[in-house]
């Protein structure tokens, strides 16, 4: 089967710093891929290039068989992204913000879609609240609602559970997993929670200083590096810096 995402020799240099250094990987439809690595490894930079927010210094990006950035608009209509570090206008209500993004994504029957998703993420009672007044966990979930408005074929998440308490994080993981299974959605996400990555990912991509140092199912990677857990592997790698 054709990959939904194919990245070849992707490179980003900032002022001589090789933030992403010639990485290549593919993601198949319906896969859950966890991208991990220490702070500054190049995770966010990689995702930003795939989303067309950042122009690569070298390399090519194919999303759903189309090239980024040449077919930017057609790609962006079919994928989405969320991160707790990106906010939505604080001075609009939850519902207003979602209506705006529903327009931007050309969602059919936006009212129904929004109601469904708010329900799923436990935000129904907040729809008339100002976005700036949400707790950080609620804002994160609102970001996820926005990211699912257009039924993305590939969903990119940058540290989706970073601001959530353990219970909320678990709820979000379960919800994402359910939606992912129901819709055959592809999920590419970053996380610093190694247990989460181990449990959730079909495959992990371990980045270190802009390069892929390990790739495969969590079990495969652990076997290859002879480690008990990703946590240990992570510490091992991080300390070798």
């Amino acid at each position: 089967m054709d990959p939904v995402l194919k990245v070849t020799n992707l490179t980003k240099v900032f002022n001589g710093l090789r933030a992403v250094d010639g990485i290549s990987f593919e993601v198949a439809r319906g896969e859950i891929v966890g991208v991990l690595g220490p702070n500054g490894a190049g995770k966010t930079t990689t995702i930003a290039m795939i989303l067309g927010l950042l122009t690569p210094t070298a390399g090519t990006i194919q999303v759903l068989g189309m090239s980024m950035p040449q077919e930017r608009q057609r790609i962006l209509a079919r994928v989405n992204f969320s991160s707790p570090y990106v906010a939505m206008p604080y001075n609009l209500t939850v519902l207003e913000n979602l209506l705006v993004f529903a327009h931007l994504y050309g969602v059919q029957a936006p009212g129904k879609k929004i109601r469904e998703l708010l329900e799923i993420f436990g935000l129904s009672t907040h729809s008339h609240q100002l976005t700036g007044r949400l707790s950080s966990g609620e804002a994160t979930r609102l970001g996820l609602v926005k990211a699912l408005l257009n039924d993305p074929e590939i969903l990119f998440l940058d540290e989706p559970t970073a601001s959530l308490d353990p219970d909320a994080a678990e709820h979000v993981r379960q919800t994402l997993l359910r939606i992912q299974q129901e819709r055959g959605m592809t999920l590419v996400y970053t996380s610093h929670n190694m247990q989460e990555v181990e449990r959730l990912s079909h495959r992990i991509i371990f980045l270190h200083r802009g390069r892929i140092i390990a790739e495969g199912s969590p079990a495969e990677v652990l076997r290859r590096f002879q480690q008990e857990s990703l946590e240990q592997l992570f510490l091992e790698v991080a300390r070798k810096q």
Partner: peptide, 18 residues
């Protein structure tokens, strides 16, 4: 500037908006 202040630019520029 409203979108800069609201940290909303990324959200906007990853939509199909040209």
């Amino acid at each position: 500037l409203e979108d800069v202040w609201a940290r909303n630019l990324i959200n906007l520029f990853i939509t199909p908006l040209s």
